[in-house]
Design a protein around this nucleic acid. Structure first.
Lengths: 202, 202, 202, 202
DNA sequence: GAGTAACCGAGACGGTACGTCGTGTCTTCTT
DNA sequence: AAGAAGACACGACGTACCGTCTCGGTTACTC
């Protein structure tokens, strides 16, 4: 029993790493990213200075920028919403509203920026980030659409993959190319209703 | 004689700038972008080295990276296709096929990468690039959809803006998040047909 | 019983400091100095590592490098020789032989190096070291010369300060600028006899 | 002939190195040394900052601190005085006065500090510095003493090496261990006269 | 065909950031 | 309480590029 306690109590000798420093580093990295820095502009030195931390303290924890940014971004991972109670139409509206709200805040907006723009240069980082933060949403969205098919709200022969692309892609398109300062509040409804109805006449 | 001098003087005195160098610079910039460089990684020094040219030769022509990249990208500007003869459905399929082909080639793929990812840091460049290369397509697409409404192919109350977002956004979504190496050949058809039909049952 | 406890309490509570560690630290510092380290190169970390000791163990005993080095150097303080029985000429030869022997051994050689070169940066350390290790020799040397004057061996109007400078300075000069590997064994005699005789002809 | 001219006119392509920068670097290094820095305290970064120069500009010229300091010190090399017209006694006084004046000025004082204290750590630098700056003086001093022997001013059996050590070493001794702020003005005379006369009575 | 002025390559310039190392201080568990 | 281990903020290291500048030499047009 004593041995068990000793075994349980075993931890690395020496001063333990400061959680405070770790948080400050993540915060600093997110701040800088939110201020518009891309991966290349984001310097370890700037992060360290902003966090009030020595560079060593960063390199002790992460081998490089890539891994640090991955950790920083995943802390922003919002919980996947649960649309169990809503109609499929309302669930999709909620889903897009959720995305729209994210793109209003600099911190969460930078998530998608990084994920979309740095894929070619940091494929493994983006890939891992995708699995942690994007995939769960896709699964939730897919489940919602499947539920719509199952309960008769949606066409039984609906191509779920292209439907997902249409829903999410529409929103991305607007957040990227909308030329005003803010997206209209009823955008999610307009998108969803337009897609449900289809383009064809008659 | 005065006129002759004036006519002759339309050309600047001194050694004329080498067209060869200019082309080599543009080519080098496009190569580097195609190889995955973003704006920050794209260095004037690297371009000069790749083009076999002194850095001065670049800075004499463009005030900075931004302007050079803008020129380089507009070089790639494909002509806007004319869908006058096709049904709206086929026109949309052609449109997306066109985009899909672009994303197959590294050079043209980088267009959208830059345009989408560097907006916050180089807003004026992206803005000008948008007017030169994106806006014409949007106009063509809008005209096509309007034609569909006018000739009864599409719903008369179709929200054209969200419809454009759905068409283009779907494609963007796939090019960005598709996890295989290549997009399926029938993707444009699947997208267009799915959107025309709508999601709703019955 | 109270008295016994009081007696026992003359010793601080808790684990007593390890004399072994203290000696190892001094030894390590002297080794490093003997290997050619100056004050700036001599790092607490290196001393701790060489002594097989944690840095804390050093900082608990000395407030800084300066004080540690002072202690280490005074450890080497050789006893001032007593020349009471010898003629002044032989006393001076003994004195220089003593210095020459010191400069043969890396450990004692480093004493003078430190004392001469670090004066501007660590004046208080050098000052205190001077009082402990150099001053006694100067006093002995001065007494020897005074004895020579008193007993008629030396000129009554001899300028004792410059004479001391000539005796000691000659030796310093050789130890610093001699370009062979070792000083000749008869050097002290040559120096002393030359000085006693003077340079002038006739 | 044309070829000869071409050969003569050949110089490295590209922008030539700035003499101004070179001088500023040397000046900065000397300033820092004069302010009491030793070799270890003297950082390339500090020199660059003080000189208003990038670090690269230093590393482009010198492989390291050692070579830079050597160059910096040799710029201070005073011309060897010529004592041809003076009596040997006055020549020696001039010689020591010259040394004493050097030790009054921070810049020239640091010469001897470096030369004497960094020998063990930077032997090749000190060796080369010795040849450039110290050796010529020794030669001049030796010649002066030899002249004294030849013209009957000095003893014919004078040991020149120990005599040189006595002259120079006395001065070194005072500059190193004198505890006031300034050396007395008549010190050279006192040293020389004491040495010429000898210590012995009668 | 000599003058001249803009062009060209090369490369040095003042900087910034890199990732590593070593400083002296601190905080933790173990003895 | 002392010990070791090691994390901490800091700062210098030497390297690699950045975008700017300053050269000698090269064109190609004008007089």
């Amino acid at each position: 029993m004593t041995m068990q306690r000793a075994a349980a109590a075993t931890r690395a000798p020496g001063r333990p790493r400061s959680e405070k420093a770790e948080k400050a580093i993540i915060e600093a990295a997110l701040d800088l990213l939110a201020e518009g820095a891309g991966m290349s502009d984001l310097s370890i030195e700037a992060i360290a200075h902003r966090a009030g931390v020595g560079k060593t303290t960063i390199y002790r924890r992460w081998p490089g920028k890539e891994e640090l940014v991955l950790d920083a971004l995943t802390t922003l991972k919002a919980p996947v919403p649960d649309f169990g109670e809503l109609s499929v139409r309302d669930a999709l509206v909620s889903y897009l509203t959720f995305i729209q709200h994210e793109s209003d805040h600099p911190r969460t907006r930078c998530i998608m920026n990084i994920a979309m723009s740095e894929r070619e240069r940091y494929p493994s980082m983006v890939e891992r980030f995708y699995r942690l933060a994007i995939e769960p949403r896709r699964i939730a969205l897919r489940a919602t659409l499947q539920r719509g098919i199952d309960n008769g709200e949606l066409r039984p022969d609906l191509d779920i993959e292209t439907a997902m692309a249409a829903v999410t892609g529409s929103m991305i398109y607007f957040t990227k190319w909308h030329h005003g300062n803010e997206l209209p509040a009823d955008l999610p409804e307009r998108i969803v209703d337009g897609l449900l109805e289809g383009f064809k006449a008659g």
